[in-house]
């Protein structure tokens, strides 16, 4: 076989492989475009509409079948009214701020709980590690709703925690823990802890133990070596874990609903109520768009991390 046609055959084979790999991606690609990306555009469009009593409960309803001219007339009725309303009503502004605050506090606490656990896992004998990882993942496979609900029985006024504390004589009368922001934070820390532990573990497990020894060999006392090497080198894991907790926690609905109180303000719950109780679809769409805008930077950061981690 002449060498030129040989080379061609090889190029052809290589080329076909590239083509194939792109081709198999077509189906999920289209699926995600239709069911993930386009819905956001619809949310954006409806957030510019006005609430209307009927089905669907907003107007205008765009329909290209009515002709381009009629559609254009309708497009012109879209307005930023919902957004100005969100900005002017302190309830929404506070809900956003309070969500960010609760999520931030919970993220820091999750990190403080998760780091020692991940560190201990990474330093555990090699044979134990698969079991320890399985033990961390297991709760994550258990229903989120049930895990949050488990805390209702523990935290409520006549619940287990108060009973134990009363028995020990630590408190004179039951504390009100359930239906407070504190309970919401406990719930977030508990429910999202595995998400924090796993990336931290991945970062810690990769570290060469000799690095820590090198630092102490060069004169760093143990606490300083821990900070300079162990903590410093797990920064990617810390960032990833924190984003995995923080982003969903900001929009969390189940936890504030079950563990929070009447004065717990979280935007996920606000959105839910606007939608299911007030049936104001355009306003809840606007709430969602603003939430997304707030989260766009952390989400992009997370995607970067994930892409680097996998490739």
């Amino acid at each position: 076989m002449p060498s030129s046609s040989n080379a061609e055959a090889r190029a052809g084979r290589g080329g076909r492989r590239v083509l194939n790999a792109s081709f198999v991606g077509l189906l999920p690609y289209v699926w995600l475009l239709v069911f993930f990306l386009i819905p956001f555009l619809i949310v954006l469009k409806i957030s510019l509409s006005t609430a209307f009593y009927g089905q669907p409960p907003y107007e205008p309803v765009l329909d290209l079948a009515e002709g381009v001219g009629a559609t254009w007339e309708k497009v012109k009725t879209l307005s930023l009214g919902n957004y100005t309303f969100l900005a002017s009503d302190s309830l929404y502004v506070e809900a956003y701020l309070s969500s960010l605050k609760i999520a931030a506090i919970a993220t820091v606490l999750t990190l403080l709980c998760g780091f020692p656990i991940a560190h201990a896992m990474a330093r555990a004998p090699r044979g134990w590690r698969p079991l320890l990882i399985a033990l961390v993942i297991m709760p994550f496979w258990t229903s989120f709703l049930i895990r949050v609900y488990a805390w209702v029985g523990i935290l409520k006024r006549e619940g287990l925690l108060n009973a134990v504390l009363l028995e020990l004589g630590a408190i004179g009368e039951p504390l009100t823990i359930l239906n407070t922001n504190f309970a919401v934070i406990v719930g977030i820390v508990y429910a999202y802890l595995p998400f924090m532990i796993l990336p931290l573990y991945a970062a810690l497990e990769r570290q060469d133990p000799a690095l820590l020894e090198a630092a102490s060999d060069l004169g760093s006392p143990p606490w300083l070596a821990f900070w300079q090497v162990t903590v410093r080198l797990s920064v990617p894991g810390i960032v990833a874990g924190s984003l995995l907790v923080f982003i969903p926690a900001v929009g969390e609905f189940v936890i504030p609903n079950l563990l929070g109180g009447s004065n717990t303000l979280m935007i996920g719950q606000t959105l839910w109520n606007e939608f299911f109780l007030n049936h104001d679809w355009p306003l809840s769409s606007a709430v969602a768009v603003v939430l997304l805008v707030i989260l766009v930077v952390p989400i992009t950061l997370f995607q970067r991390y994930q892409a680097r981690e996998v490739e």
């Binding site: 819905p39 969903p248 609905f253 996920g268 839910w272 939430l291 989400i299 997370f302």
Partner: peptide
Amino acid sequence: VMPEVITGLS
């Protein structure tokens, strides 16, 4: 990481 309320609503 997308908050579920956003995915659900959209």
